[in-house]
Amino acid sequence: MKLWIVGLPLLVAGCKASHVVYVHEQTLGVDVALTTEGTNKLNVGYDRESFAFIPRFQEGANKGKAMSVAAVGRAHIQGLSDIQIEHMVATGAPAIEVAKGAKELAQVAKTILADDGGAEK
């Protein structure tokens, strides 16, 4: 019951997302957490999660629509603490323009993914 009372304000806060979010995290051990994005967890052992969260506009002409986002990302993971990432994230008007320019976006993907060295994508 206490857990629920603590968790409720966090869940409510999570409904008013004000950020585009990308998270990659991994844990070995004991992890107990309540989050405003992602999944609440009680984990013993190894756990890994990656997710992105694209919020909807809360007001204005675009109310209810999801934000415009164009992104290319790479995560290279070796072991528990060696994480190398490279991310390009375009938001708003630039995201629409970037998404229309397929060649440019493909070139970005080529640049980011070129040096993956067996990376996990």
Binding site: L10, V21, E25, L28, L34, H87, V89
Partner: peptide, 19 residues
């Protein structure tokens, strides 16, 4: 984003871009 406790090893990479 998160309230919790971790015992062990944990790594995280996160982006938070305002709307």
């Amino acid at each position: 984003r998160r309230t919790g406790v971790t015992i062990g090893v944990r790594s995280l990479v996160g982006l938070a871009i305002p709307t």
